[in-house]
Amino acid sequence: MDKEIKNVDLLIIGGGPAGLTAAIYAARAKLNMVLLENQITGGQVRNSYTIENYPGFKTIEGSALADLMIEQAKDLGATIDEFDQIIGVKLTDQEKTVETQSYIYKPKAIIIATGASPRKLPIPNEDKYSGRGVHYCAVCDGAVYEGSVIGVVGGGNSALEEALFLTRFASKVIMIRRYDYFKGEKATLEEVERNPKIEIMYNWDLVNVEGENFVNKAIVKNTITGEEKDLELDAVFGYIGNVPKTELFREYIKLNENGYIITDENMQTNIKGVYAAGDVREKVYRQITTAVADGTIAALAAEKFIVESSRK
């Protein structure tokens, strides 16, 4: 049986803040659009327990913010498909084809908003203990470690914020930081320093984790003296940056050397009618607000492109 072909105006790939914002604008522009999400709609924002720097909200749970965006998009008539999977794409200036498990989409324009996934801890036993002591999402997996000792690796906002979140379960949180400073917001660092459950180990690098069925210790190395020692703990959460999700598009879309999509300031990629928005783009600062801004511009640019190409 041949797959059904779906001719749509706009296909948005990815349902995080960038994709959802694009969906809101596209729906209000009455475009015939579909948003595809192959994991959880809301994207990375859902994994932040508390967000306190999104304008308009003094404090809001990541899940709550994600749900508000999704509800708004759906209420405006946006179509979100969470159950399909893209298996291949073909992208040219003249024609775009996106094949999924269920359909063949032929959109006039595409917005790639696939975001990024957490960079894995570069330790030998990462794969062996992934999900069994090695984790990247405190909101998802922290609750399992009630009363345990948990290590957090990373130097930015996420590492600091998630360490604070983990104190609601952990008996102790150990921050394993390979330099003598943190890159995150001072306000958050001060909260971490004040928290009696959190110990900061500056100038230590995580070398490996070991255990039986589950992790029961970490091996750390001092970056100044070279001394190695064992830390007894039950889990390590990694917050060491993100890797862009661009494998699917590699053949057609120009990427920088780290795999991020290169665009002009109107989100246009090297292919006419294909745009990129959010964390997946080459840029210096990645925040919810910048993702939302990208989604807006991409949707408006895509709309202009769609209208102009139907005039030809």
């Binding site: 959880i40 809301g42 969470e82 998802c140 609750a143």
Partner: peptide, 14 residues
């Protein structure tokens, strides 16, 4: 499932 697990919601929605 658990109360706060998004993949659980997705599985049940499916």
């Amino acid at each position: 499932s658990t109360t706060t697990c998004p993949w659980c919601v997705k599985a049940k929605d499916y």
